[in-house]
Design a protein around this nucleic acid. Structure first.
Length: 425
RNA sequence: GGAGAGGUGGCUGAGUGGUCGAAAGCGAACGACUCGAAAUCGUUUAAUAGGCAACUAUUCGUGGGUUCGAAUCCCACCCUCUCCGCCA
């Protein structure tokens, strides 16, 4: 959520900042509404003040005179009634205005950071660095072919259970998934993150707080009988874990690592990544999350990204770091570094982690503050996948494929998986 | 799902129509006493919006309503707790 005061006082700078996203944002309408609201607020405040004084006077009058039916009292009450009617008229207007303003502002995305590369879409993203040596061989089997051959997962049967884009993990596939989750949780815990397993169902306020609602209701699954949604990412429950709180500054930064299943409708992605583990309606993810002192979120952003990278390095998976350009930034983010892992079969890097600094955007939506110099100040929130489990498995299968069709398990994962090889039957 | 109880400031908890934004206690901060500390005493101690400030307004789960005036009365909803039932 952008600062309403800023919209009211400096609409030009708001439009200018938003336009970095490569689209035109017209905020003149909200701007007018905020000014109107301000006038009405003042008007109401004055009326209430007078009405309050009058009520006190009536109270004093009654206790003094004992005559509850005097003409004077009747006149005073009549006057008070006039106030009440007038005030309720203004309040009606105020309610409508508030609704309109909230609607419009909660649909506005965060400002891109000044440090983010300027660009229109993903083609303008900037590669910052690469790590490891990508395998460049012809005819490398895709991870779904490998998985099918080794009987690690099953998608056709899963459409019976649910529909397309769901998967059932089997045997070593299930075990590898479990090993990856434990491995990542352990590493991050050792690095100072507190482990959480949050609810997988979240209410509308939670989705609003982290920025998935109101704009992206189409991208999450909704429970029809309740105000509950299947959480698309642990970022949602983690943000709301501290919603409506004022956090003791001594506790900052708060760092959480959370395992959670993630559910996404993937509307509009028909025909893309239809096979394998890359794009599913349900997938597992280990998420990193920081509540940071506002003055320290830039270094926090570097740290959270490095923490996500450390998993790829320990698994010895080649990857690159991408600085997302202003036009490709997610709704709540001011700056995002994507980690993309090398997939030999498609000879390209695929997103496996997204590390974002949302500054005070989510904190304002969720009302999460801390005391700085005795003033309540919105904290900064950062999130990063550390990592998406399914995509990590895909990368391990393709990068670890041996000439005999077996798959080598990265050394660091062996203690978790219990074997250094997935053999062909 | 059935029956009951309840949601008040950082916490405990009083308050059933009129200076109640709210007693009291705890906690916290500051000061006095002390070489220092404990104890004691004194003062202070909610948030939000607007304003440079004085101040004004709002907020007693949420949203409506009654009234000149609502923490207090009415309606709806949400949540929590206890017991029973069901259940991993």
């Amino acid at each position: 959520m952008l600062d309403q005061k800023l919209i009211r006082e400096n609409p030009a700078s708001v439009e200018k900042n938003l336009s970095l996203r490569g689209k035109v944002f017209k905020i003149s309408h909200v701007h007018e509404l905020t000014i109107k609201k301000r006038e009405i607020d003042t008007e109401i405040s004055i009326l209430q003040s007078e009405s309050k004084k009058l009520s006190k006077l009536i109270g004093q009058e009654i206790s003094r005179s004992q005559n509850n039916d005097s003409l004077e009292l009747k006149n005073l009450k009549k006057k008070g009634n006039d106030y009440r009617i007038k005030i309720s008229e203004f309040e009606e207007k105020q309610r409508t205005l508030n609704k309109q303003i909230n609607n419009e502002i909660s649909n506005l995305p965060n400002f891109p950071s000044k440090d983010a590369p300027i660009g229109k879409d993903e083609s303008n993203n900037v590669q910052v660095k690469t790590w490891g040596d990508p395998i460049l061989k012809e005819n490398v089997k895709s991870h779904w072919e490998i998985g099918e051959r080794l009987n690690l997962f099953e998608s056709v049967k899963s459409t019976k259970i649910s529909k397309s884009r769901f998967i059932t993990l089997i045997g070593n596939g299930a075990r590898l998934e479990r090993a990856l989750i434990n491995f990542m949780l352990d590493i991050h815990s050792k690095n100072g993150y507190l482990e959480l397993i949050p609810p997988a169902l979240v209410n509308s306020d939670s989705l609003l707080g982290s920025g998935q609602l109101p704009k992206f209701s189409n991208e999450s699954f909704k429970c029809s009988n309740d105000d509950l949604w299947l959480s698309p990412t642990a970022e949602v429950p983690l943000t709301s874990f501290h919603r409506n709180e004022i956090i003791d500054p001594k506790l900052l930064p708060i760092k959480y690592v959370a395992y959670s299943p993630c559910f996404r409708r993937e509307a509009g992605s028909y025909g893309r990544d239809t096979k394998g583990l890359i794009r599913l309606h349900q997938f597992n993810k280990v998420e990193l999350y920081w509540f940071s002192d506002p003055s320290k979120s830039l270094t926090a952003h570097e740290q959270i990204t490095a923490d996500a990278e450390s998993i790829l390095q320990k698994l010895n998976l080649p990857y690159r770091l991408i600085d997302i350009c202003t036009g490709d930034l997610g709704f709540s983010s001011s700056r995002t570094f994507d980690l993309e892992v090398w997939l030999p079969s498609s000879k390209c890097y695929r997103e496996i982690s997204s590390c974002s600094n949302c500054l005070d955007f989510q904190a304002r939506r969720s009302s999460i503050r801390t005391k700085i110099d005795k003033k309540n100040t919105y904290i900064h929130t950062l999130n990063g996948s550390g990592l998406a489990i399914g995509r990590t498995m895909a990368a391990i299968l393709e990068n670890g494929l041996q000439t005999d069709g077996s798959v080598k398990i990265p050394d660091a994962l062996v203690p978790y998986f219990g074997s250094n090889l997935i053999k062909c039957n």
